[in-house]
Design a protein around this nucleic acid. Sequence first.
DNA 1: CCAAAACATTGAACTAGGACAAGAAATACA
DNA 2: TGTATTTCTTGTCCTAGTTCAATGTTTTGG
Lengths: 195, 195
Amino acid sequence: MDRYSQINESISRYVTFSKEELDILNSQLEYREVPKKTIMLHEGEMCNFEAFVIKGCIRKYYIDSNGHEVILQFAIENSWVSDISFSIYEDRPSHTFIETLEDCELLIFSPESKEELFKQAPRFERAFRILLYRNLSVTQDRLFNTIAKTAMDKYLEFLDHYPSLPQRVAQHYIASYLGISAEFLSKVRAKIAKN
Amino acid sequence: MDRYSQINESISRYVTFSKEELDILNSQLEYREVPKKTIMLHEGEMCNFEAFVIKGCIRKYYIDSNGHEVILQFAIENSWVSDISFSIYEDRPSHTFIETLEDCELLIFSPESKEELFKQAPRFERAFRILLYRNLSVTQDRLFNTIAKTAMDKYLEFLDHYPSLPQRVAQHYIASYLGISAEFLSKVRAKIAKN
DNA sequence: CCAAAACATTGAACTAGGACAAGAAATACA
DNA sequence: TGTATTTCTTGTCCTAGTTCAATGTTTTGG
């Protein structure tokens, strides 16, 4: 069970790659261990990495000028985290943070190494495009849920998708992800517990 | 001013293409006029097109089992609309609709023609990947706004980004896009008018 | 092992926004 | 051109969720 087995399996889910292609992929990745509570990306900085999580948990969040903090993503095992600073709202300073919540083992692309990968093995373009589609699809579903569902429904659905997270991260982070206050999430949970 | 000038300009914004490459792109697109109030994608159907809007306005929306309707996107001139049915929530039937709100002139990819484009001119992979990044970024910003901003702020920001839409589409569609009720949007507008 | 900090719970008072209903205005279309 | 339909506004009442504050619980790290 080497350190690349998870990423190789994950990337092969939608496109099949040869052993040689996977070797090229792996050679472009940098393995890195990051202790918990490390802020990997601060506001204003350009994000110069794309990280695949082998182990651990990371949060990505925005803070607006009024201090509103919203968690946009939890990245756990076998998922990717990065910031795409293409904001259409370029004038409006929306600051993205990326922070480890647990000790993490990561595989990291720099922009250059990803480019190099595509040059040496262009078929990865397709796989990463599909990953991007999935990401967009999940984000759209979340947007829909945020608008159309009650706090209770959102939390139950969250439990479905991230059954391990309530044991792993502080509850107020989950509240922030769901777009509700920490206190109200506590009340929702009390209600669930009663039934 | 031929029918391809807009798409060629739009696609050249982030990657530069030769005349020959653009010719290949154009040859893979089908021009289609669609009258207003046409539902181009019904619930349950697989979306077999990707449409670039030359002229007109389209809405994409979800309806959940409780009848909640949420507009996910307005596609106006020079933007793309399609459905990516990669829903992680595959069990949950989230139905997507795509409907023209005005008479439209479109350029349309089928999945096959897009594949053919990538085969004949692989550099388009990159351009479409960038478009996808932008799309994801916009959706993330919307998610953040939906969670963190008041109805008033959301509407003002909407006016900033889509100044022409209030004159073009019914107000309750805008309310649905913003995730507020039509009545409340009306009250927000009354408040704005008073100042 | 203990103190400090972070986190979670609960309650009470409040508010942004929703649901409903009824009328006014605008649009569509015969 | 007039009628029907859709859209918009405004008011009243209502509720899901917020804010604040106090208390209890767990985690952290020295």
